[in-house]
Amino acid sequence: MTSSLRLETITPDNVGAACRLRVRPEQEDFVAPVAWSLAEAYANGETAWPRLIFDADELVGFVMGGFDPQSPVDVFRCGIWRLNIVAGQQGRGYGRFAVESVCAEARRRGQDRVTVLWAAGEHGPEQFYLRLGFRPTGQEIHGQIVGELLLAER
């Protein structure tokens, strides 16, 4: 991992590039487009944490965490809501950096558990999240598997 990786907030200057970000075609059924995620972030302004992932000056991805410690649904109190890595940039550690960044923000906010939802399928993100230490909880929400990472274990 290079020290040139960083997260940036979405601004008027970078929102267009963010909305043009595309994952591999076979992954499109597993993650919402960034434009949809930004609309969701706007609608959930108090809890959504959308960030762009840059390697030096190159946009390589998007991650959105969600932090709502008062949510009546424990799965939505602290988690990764979205992760999109540019099609040609996958497998280079950018997804791991994004997940670690959300975990760092969770710790900063006093959280000890991060959740993520994924749909099962050949081109889905399940193996990625399992490699990072997430474990299925046995729950499903909206037809998606709920995974959790206990931060105290890392």
Rank of each mutant, 00 (worst) to 15 (best):
T11I: 11
P25Q: 12
A41V: 09
W36N: 02
D13A: 14
A32P: 01
N14W: 09
Y42V: 01
W49Q: 04
A35Y: 01
C19Y: 07
W49T: 09
R20Y: 08
P33I: 00
A17P: 06
A48K: 12
E46W: 05
P12A: 04
V34K: 06
D13G: 02
A43Y: 10
N14D: 13
S37V: 09
N14G: 05
G45K: 03
A32D: 03
V34N: 06
F30K: 02
F30P: 06
E40Y: 15
A41M: 10
W49F: 14
A43I: 00
A32K: 04
G16Q: 12
R24C: 10
P12S: 03
I10Q: 10
A32G: 09
A48S: 14
A39N: 14
L38C: 07
V23W: 05
S37Y: 00
T11P: 05
P33T: 00
W36K: 04
G45E: 05
W49C: 10
N14K: 01
E40L: 14
Y42S: 14
P33G: 00
W36A: 01
R22W: 09
L21D: 11
L38K: 13
Y42R: 15
E28K: 14
N14I: 04
L38H: 13
A35H: 05
Q27A: 07
L38F: 12
A48T: 05
D13C: 01
A41S: 15
V15E: 07
A32Q: 03
G16P: 02
V15N: 02
A18R: 04
R22T: 10
Y42F: 12
R22V: 08
W36Q: 08
E40K: 15
R22S: 14
S37K: 04
E46Q: 08
S37I: 02
A35C: 05
A39R: 15
S37P: 06
V31D: 01
S37H: 07
T47E: 15
A35Q: 07
W49E: 13
T11H: 02
Y42W: 12
P33Q: 03
N14Q: 09
P25F: 10
I10N: 08
D29Y: 12
A32T: 00
V23L: 09
N14F: 10
A32M: 03
C19N: 12
S37D: 13
P25S: 15
V31A: 05
D29H: 14
R20K: 14
A43L: 11
R20D: 15
A39T: 08
E26H: 12
Q27G: 11
L38P: 11
R22N: 13
T47P: 05
E40D: 14
C19W: 02
A43S: 13
G16I: 04
A17T: 09
P25V: 12
A41E: 03
T11V: 11
G45R: 07
N44F: 02
R20I: 11
A48F: 02
W49S: 13
I10R: 09
A43P: 03
N14R: 01
R24M: 10
E28L: 13
L21A: 07
Q27H: 13
V23S: 15
L38V: 00
L38A: 09
D13Y: 11
V34D: 05
R24P: 04
L38D: 08
A41I: 08
G45P: 01
E26V: 04
G16H: 11
W36E: 03
A17M: 10
A35D: 07
W36H: 03
P33V: 00
E28S: 14
W36D: 05
P12T: 12
P25G: 06
V34R: 06
L38T: 00
E26F: 03
